[in-house]
Computed example of a mutant assay.
Amino acid sequence: MSGAETIELVDISEFNYETDGKVYNEGKNILVTSRLYDELDVLDINKCKNSNTFKLIVSTLYHEMGHVSDWKKMPNLYRMVEENPTSAEGVASLFWLEYIAEKRSAEKNLVDHDSFCTDIAKSEWRAYKTEFGRAGSDNFTYLCKVLPYFMGRTIDPQKRKKYMGIMKNRLVKEFVIEVDKEIKKLEKEYPFDEPEKLQDLYSIINIFFNKFREAYEPY
């Protein structure tokens, strides 16, 4: 946390998409939104500390603090995400960095993510569009935003098996399997700061984008 200068709480109404937090300004600033805080019945920690919502708030902060730490180790990857988010390197870097941060948070077992993982598994995911900043099961960009969280939260083999067993979309299941193979390779090299090392990860993402378009894009 030595690199962080501020933690700011911002009203969720200022965002046009659902988010709980982000890190910006070269890892110096953490921003958390009011979305989860608005769900609390009281703001007294002694009264709400056992609620799932409060645990989600703690998990979010832990996730974002992990980004602060990772930004020091991998400034080139974070710069790629900030400056060229739609480029091949930017897409792959975001996927990788979110996976690393969420895996770290999930390993703390601060909160139960069953509802989130079940929703991912049971969604139709007719994802043929590419629209940044918009949630939706028809949006491949959004799928790539949530999938690192799903994978980070299902590191345990039994958890992964459970959700893969109920996964509705065959392409999403294949996507997870192929990305998982590549991530296991990348983890052996962590931390690294060369965007070119993520070329194979992007190739997998691009291959599956084309598969989703072929399967679901209307003609």
Rank of each mutant, 00 (worst) to 15 (best):
R79P: 01
N84R: 15
H113C: 07
F95L: 14
H67C: 08
V32Y: 04
D38E: 14
E124L: 09
K49M: 13
G90T: 01
E102A: 03
E89R: 03
S59L: 01
Y37Q: 03
T53A: 10
H113R: 14
D44A: 06
A121H: 06
E83I: 09
M74R: 14
A101F: 04
T53Y: 05
L56Q: 13
N16W: 05
T19H: 01
P85D: 12
A121Q: 10
D20E: 11
R35T: 07
S105N: 13
M65P: 00
N50D: 15
D114N: 13
E39A: 09
E124R: 10
P85M: 12
I100N: 04
S123E: 12
T130I: 13
E89T: 01
I45K: 10
V23Y: 02
Y128C: 06
V68I: 15
L97N: 10
W96S: 08
E39D: 07
V58M: 11
F95T: 01
S115W: 04
G90D: 02
S34R: 13
G66Y: 07
S105Y: 04
E107F: 02
C117L: 14
E102P: 00
A101N: 07
N109Y: 09
H63M: 07
L40R: 04
T130E: 14
L36F: 02
G21K: 05
K122Y: 01
E131M: 08
E64K: 10
T86D: 15
I45W: 03
F116L: 09
G21P: 04
E124C: 02
E64D: 09
D114Q: 08
E89S: 13
K28M: 06
S93P: 07
D41E: 15
L110Q: 06
I45Q: 04
V23Q: 04
C48M: 11
D138V: 03
I120A: 11
F95H: 06
D114F: 06
E18H: 06
G27H: 12
T33L: 04
K129M: 14
K129E: 14
R104C: 04
D114P: 00
Y128I: 03
R134C: 02
T60K: 10
V32N: 06
N46A: 10
K72Y: 10
K22P: 00
H67L: 07
C117I: 01
G136T: 08
C117K: 03
N84M: 12
V42H: 09
L56V: 00
E83C: 03
T33C: 06
G21V: 00
M65D: 01
A92G: 06
V111E: 11
D138W: 12
S69P: 00
N139S: 08
T33V: 02
K72A: 15
D138F: 09
K55F: 06
T141M: 11
K122Q: 14
N29Q: 15
K47Q: 14
P75Y: 13
K103H: 08
L94W: 02
L94T: 01
L61D: 07
L97H: 10
Y78C: 12
R79N: 15
N139F: 05
M74N: 10
M80R: 11
